[in-house]
């Protein structure tokens, strides 16, 4: 095998492609915004929960607009190949179910929580931050696997540690505790996303119409075709 073939590391290339998907910080900005919105919505009438679906679609569309405006002019246009929806949904369900079982086992065996306590919705809110934190290890592990960057373990770790802190603070109103958790986690995510975005803008200047054939046709005939 030639040296040039040896230099092509497929895993590395794939990780580089996925790293670019998080390079602009928008994923974390929108995750944060979604968590902040959830913090507000859970304190309203349950009918407002449908707002979250609308927000999810709106954020998705907005991220497309922002990427067209800020990301693609800097590093070129790209759409990463995503997992099949069926595989993705079954993966999420499996992971959240495993976490739920482990979570209950830990609560009822080691923490000595009375199973009867879970007939009270207040107790669900009380332990929700730590459950949510553990669930966040799912996307965290997935991103680490795809990008090869260990820093994304931070997402699961920060979510879990923060959840643990909120649970141990033992707020009188458990729903208030969960709201605080979402507000804090959402703010942290927005700040990290914002910093990433600013660094991205500074590091990558806009490429000035490098694909316009009429601009360079005298210098490079190959562009004329494209």
């Amino acid at each position: 095998m030639s040296d040039s073939h040896k230099n092509i590391n497929l895993k590395e290339i794939s990780q580089k492609v996925y790293r670019n998907d998080y390079i602009d910080g928008f994923t974390f900005i929108f995750l944060g915004a979604f968590l902040l919105l959830t913090a507000g919505v859970i304190n309203l009438h349950p009918v407002f929960m449908s707002l979250l679906i609308v927000a999810f679609i709106a954020f998705f569309q907005l991220s497309k607009v922002l990427r067209n405006r800020y990301t693609y002019p800097r590093i070129g246009y790209f759409k990463v190949k995503t997992d099949e929806p069926k595989k993705l949904i079954s993966g999420i369900l499996l992971f959240t179910s495993i976490v739920l079982i482990v979570f209950f086992l830990l609560l009822f065996t080691f923490a000595g929580v009375d199973p009867e306590a879970f007939y009270n919705i207040e107790n669900w809110y009380r332990f929700l931050p730590i459950y949510f934190g553990l669930v966040m290890f799912g996307p965290s592990l997935d991103i680490v696997d795809k990008t090869g960057q260990r820093k994304y373990y931070g997402l699961g770790m920060v979510s879990t540690i923060l959840g643990l802190l909120i649970v141990t603070m033992n707020f009188q109103n458990a729903k208030f505790g969960f709201t605080i958790y979402l507000l804090l986690l959402g703010s942290i995510s927005c700040i990290i996303g914002g910093i990433t975005f600013v660094r991205f803008i500074k590091k990558y200047p806009i490429i000035i119409d490098s694909e316009q054939p009429e601009m360079q046709e005298e210098n490079d005939d190959s562009q004329e075709k494209y």
Partner: peptide
């Protein structure tokens, strides 16, 4: 190898990568 992980891209992205 780059295209394998991508759904779609453009010349600029491929050129840079």
């Amino acid at each position: 190898a780059y295209l394998y992980s991508l759904k779609e891209t453009d010349f600029t992205y491929l050129k840079i990568q």
